[in-house]
Design a protein around this nucleic acid. Structure first.
Ligand SMILES: [Zn+2]
Length: 289
DNA sequence: CGATCAACCTGGTTGC
DNA sequence: TGCAACCAGGTTGATC
């Protein structure tokens, strides 16, 4: 499910539980088994009991997005905490009044109270690539330390261009696709939006970053942000799982120009599909240089 | 440094 | 039709 727009939509839905207090937590047998085997699926904490104990009694203060991560600031009179969640490839949340989820692969259920209301927050993740962590402070989380600014703020573009200049100076030979999928350059750009943005800007995904111009890089950055906004407006891309917690799906997948396409929408020639850095890339060798 | 692969997983789609 | 092979919005760490 998850590139920046999809994560943003999840966060928007999760905001309904801001102000709720965590009463109890239950974990799936799958998670418990995984931990017994020393694999730590989904719950990235050495000790499951500690994980639960550190959350019970905490009030959910705010829920925000940072890159593709979901950040929940928790507060209680003794020690505040922060939950950092990532949806991996197939993770999603659902909020309802069912104490026990009927959905397969529900791995974590939080019982939440607000005054007289009780709701349940379920985390569902068939592939279990997602992550739930509890930390004392957000600064402890390594991936945030080197992460580029948020793309909807004003610093994003300047940061992106600074990074580009550094790579150029260092004679870096990495490809442009690799560059834009690196959260240290721009956050939230996954495989789909990387393919789409490069096609729209007519840049070949294997083009070396150092041969591109600053002008072209600014254009590319703006296109990525534009795609993010367009996607959020359309409710995100829904391919393998739902985006919205009410089961509604997005329609951004109908707007794809190159991702998983057979023919180029510009010249009608056959689209090339090739694995680059473990991800499938779609591009037109005629239109993208 | 950078590209590639493996690991972590299940389920839907494709192709023989 | 049946079933195996292949593929999927991600991230990290090892290897070459
Ligand atoms: Zn073309």
């Amino acid at each position: 499910m998850p590139e920046l727009p999809e994560v943003q939509l999840v966060v928007d839905d999760l905001k309904t539980i801001e102000g709720y207090t965590i009463e109890s937590i239950s974990l799936s047998d799958r998670i418990k088994l995984s931990h017994r085997q020393g694999k730590m699926a989904v719950v990235k904490h050495e000790n499951l009991q500690q994980f639960e104990q550190s959350l019970i009694g905490q009030k959910i203060n705010t829920i925000e997005r940072r890159g593709k991560y979901i950040v929940m600031q928790l507060t209680n009179p003794i020690n505040d905490k922060v939950v950092i969640a990532h949806l991996g490839m197939s993770g999603r949340f659902e909020i309802n009044t069912n104490r026990v989820s009927s959905i397969p692969h529900t791995h974590t259920t939080f019982e939440l109270n607000y005054e007289t209301k009780t709701v349940y927050l379920h985390y569902i993740d068939p592939r279990r690539f997602g992550e739930l962590r509890v930390l004392d402070h957000i600064n402890e989380f390594k991936p945030f330390q080197q992460m580029a600014p948020e793309p909807f703020g004003i610093e994003g573009e300047a940061y992106f261009i600074d990074r580009f200049k550094q790579f150029k100076l260092n004679r870096s030979t990495i490809s442009i696709k690799q560059f834009i999928m690196d959260a240290e350059n721009v956050v939230g750009c996954g495989n789909i939006y990387a393919n789409e943005a490069l096609f729209i800007c007519r840049i070949h995904p294997l083009r070396k970053v150092h041969v591109l111009t600053e002008r072209k890089m600014r254009e590319l950055y703006k296109e990525i942000v534009k795609l993010f906004i367009k996607s959020i407006e359309r409710g995100g891309s829904s391919i393998h799982s739902y985006v919205h917690m009410d089961g509604e799906i997005g329609s951004m997948q109908d707007e794809f120009l190159i991702y998983q396409k057979k023919l180029c929408p510009i010249c009608q020639k056959k689209v090339t599909s090739r694995r680059i850095n473990q991800r499938n890339s779609f591009y037109c060798t005629n239109c993208q240089k």
